[in-house]
């Protein structure tokens, strides 16, 4: 019954996925009526389910966020009590601060690079892992293992074990095998090899978890769909991937993209730990700069303003991808 629909990839994004079709069929008019009558009861039930979370988020997120918003319009040095309101001055100062704006620029580029790369790598690995019959669990485990390592520790391994600029680093030991000289991976501004270090550690740490999300999505695609399309003459490979696999991975793709974008803009630990001291100015993420302003310098007014600018950028990017992919839609 699905095989009649030869869906175009773009169109498929707005086509309800399979479980939603079922839900449309089953939501009869009568049951909708009943739901309307029980609205008040539903609200109570809803709060039974979501209440604990919302309470916790209120204490540990919403109040601090509102606090930060207030501080962003105020003078607050070495105190969390505003000592005089300054309007938008903190925001203006941050936009005038070349260290902040250049780090925002660098990280727009970083996000444009790392998000598609991580997405493609994790999807590719999921397809590859899912395509083999033997030792599937083993490979899945191996690719997921780096998730067990914290950013701080992975940074230490990358900085001190793999990409150190001396003869003792793994990367340079490999270069010696090819009779090349030791290379200074992290500290030279040109050519910017430090990006290779930063990108590989991020991929190593993150790809596994996104791959698992994709594998989960892949395993939920009913096999009948493929079989029906083979009957219709579709070939294994790119054709079925385009017509069936990718469209039905919509939910997984949305999750992976969203988490990826947020993670890219919130980059912190590996930069902070690998690009130490005078190297940090080569690639300083906005969050690290905000952290320096708010934590080292105790300037919570400017720190909060910078943080909110960053938050607005993250939200803007999320909404943008939502426009294209219809993220978060219920039906």
């Amino acid at each position: 019954m699905y095989s009649e629909k030869k869906v175009e990839p773009m169109k498929s994004l707005s086509t309800p996925s399979q479980p939603e079709i079922i839900s449309l069929r089953n939501d009869t008019k009568a049951s909708r009526q009943r739901i309307k009558q029980q609205n008040r009861k539903a609200a109570l039930v809803f709060w039974c389910f979501a209440g604990p979370l919302i309470l916790g988020l209120t204490v540990f997120f919403y109040i601090p966020i509102i606090w930060a918003v207030v501080l962003s319009f105020a003078n607050a040095r070495a105190t969390l009590t505003p000592t005089g309101f300054v309007g938008f001055q903190n925001y203006i100062d941050m936009f005038k601060d070349s260290a902040f704006t250049s780090s925002l620029g660098t990280f727009l580029l970083f996000a444009l690079f790392i998000v598609p790369t991580t997405f493609a790598a994790s999807l590719g690995m999921a397809l590859l892992v899912n395509s083999v019959k033997k030792a599937q669990g083993f490979f899945r485990s191996v690719f997921f293992l780096p998730t067990a390592c914290s950013y701080v520790l992975a940074s230490a391994v990358w900085r001190m074990g793999i990409f150190s600029g001396t003869d003792s680093g793994l990367a340079n030991t490999v270069l010696h095998l090819f009779h090349l000289n030791s290379f200074d991976w992290i500290t030279t501004p040109t050519p910017p090899w430090f990006w290779l270090v930063l990108v590989t550690v991020r991929l190593w740490l993150q790809v596994g978890i996104y791959m698992i999300i994709f594998v989960a999505g892949l395993q939920e695609i009913p096999r009948e769909l493929y079989e029906a399309s083979y009957v219709d003459g579709a070939k294994k490979g790119w054709e079925t991937f385009r017509a069936i696999t990718f469209p039905l991975l919509r939910n997984a793709s949305i999750s992976v993209l969203l988490l990826n974008i947020i993670a890219a803009f919130q980059a912190f630990d590996e930069f902070y730990n690998i690009m130490f001291g005078g190297n940090l100015s080569l690639a300083r993420p906005p969050l690290v700069y905000i952290y320096q302003v708010a934590m080292f310098n105790q300037d919570f007014g400017h720190g909060s303003a910078g943080a909110l600018i960053l938050t607005i950028i993250i939200i803007a990017f999320t909404l943008l991808q939502g426009r294209f992919l219809g993220f978060g839609k219920k039906d």
């Binding site: 260290a99 001291g277 190297n279 302003v293 310098n297």
Partner: peptide, 14 residues
Amino acid sequence: NAAMETYLEDAVSK
């Protein structure tokens, strides 16, 4: 303070 330290270090790094 720490902010001045950042400004100076960035320049010195260059």
